[in-house]
Design a protein around this nucleic acid. Sequence first.
DNA 1: CATTGTGAACGGGTTCACAGCA
DNA 2: TGCTGTGAACCCGTTCACAATG
Lengths: 207, 207
Amino acid sequence: MRLELIPDIVVGRLPRYLQTLHKMAGEGKQTTSSQELGAELGISAAQIRKDLSFFGGFGKQGTGYAISFLVERLQEILKVNQVWDIALVGAGNLGKAIAQYQGFTNRGFRVVMVFDNDLAVIGTQLGKFTVQDSAGMLQAIRQARVKIAMLTVPALAAQKVAEILVEAGVQAILNYSPTALTLPDEIQVEYIDPILQLQHMTYYLKA
Amino acid sequence: MRLELIPDIVVGRLPRYLQTLHKMAGEGKQTTSSQELGAELGISAAQIRKDLSFFGGFGKQGTGYAISFLVERLQEILKVNQVWDIALVGAGNLGKAIAQYQGFTNRGFRVVMVFDNDLAVIGTQLGKFTVQDSAGMLQAIRQARVKIAMLTVPALAAQKVAEILVEAGVQAILNYSPTALTLPDEIQVEYIDPILQLQHMTYYLKA
DNA sequence: CATTGTGAACGGGTTCACAGCA
DNA sequence: TGCTGTGAACCCGTTCACAATG
């Protein structure tokens, strides 16, 4: 369910703005303009101004936007001015890679638990995590009040696992399994499937 | 560059149709309707019919679409009725996971070479690949006429590596690095960045 | 004087509704 | 009768253009 006081497509662009602003800040820039930000992202200046104006007048005529100020506003809007705990389900190759990924920190997220149902994997150490038995997943997630999960299980298991996650109180799922999930409207679901994106590109390739 | 005889947004939905049709075929179904397919994907029936009609009349009034026939047509349209070779650049945690991923086969893709610039990794075995020195990347890709690359290198290296890939003749890049790439218009680029998708979802979460 | 914020114009994607056909 | 294919209507996101302002 995405209640649309603000168009969802606008919300979807905000993280990209934030990403580029972080990069600019890292380069020591203090200020930017809708023009400059747009050029970096391949988005029109007018669109960036309009998107930001949904949330308030963050800029100054003549000078543009103060980067650090805009970063703070966007973090507030996206609710990433806090750290969200994430449960990772599926400790296969991909799950292992994600569990060890360092890039979540400082962007509002951290993995706090890893589950699998494979006896050969349960109990093994994965970075700083011990892989837990997914039999106890519902309880563990509910108790820790984790609201976000990443799903890296085989396609056939995804729907079932997702339903358990929802029952455990998870409100947002990032699904790496190549399957569309059917879940209640109020659950946020995003998909990552490299094959879909590759196939999109091959359409445009010369044989 | 995406020349628009067919709207790009339509092309982007075709892989999803294909994915669901594959699943239906695997369940033994022979036929489906725009209604049924749409329900599965959360897309309106009218939209599916209109999308498909850009490419031809694939259905039959009264009965719907023959799944195997539609799968073949979509594979043709997306040019995945062949196997595309992929070069993987970056043999870190994520690159390793992708190199060993079994899901590309039968969807039109296979990884054929893996590169890295880290001396500690070059020469090591990664599934059935030996990690090659990225110093020889340009030559190797050019010689093998590889047209698609996946990028799993650190953000700061991504732009530079992408430029080498383009020089080597790569026409499509799937970029897992959290950076926007600036490349010639005719190069296809798609991005995978879990943080952008997580931040999109947190907007809708209750604190 | 550069650049924002925004109402109005525009364009294109989605939905509607129905004719056509197995 | 059931479902496709499609022109027309509709809706919504993007671009335009300019007044406002530091």
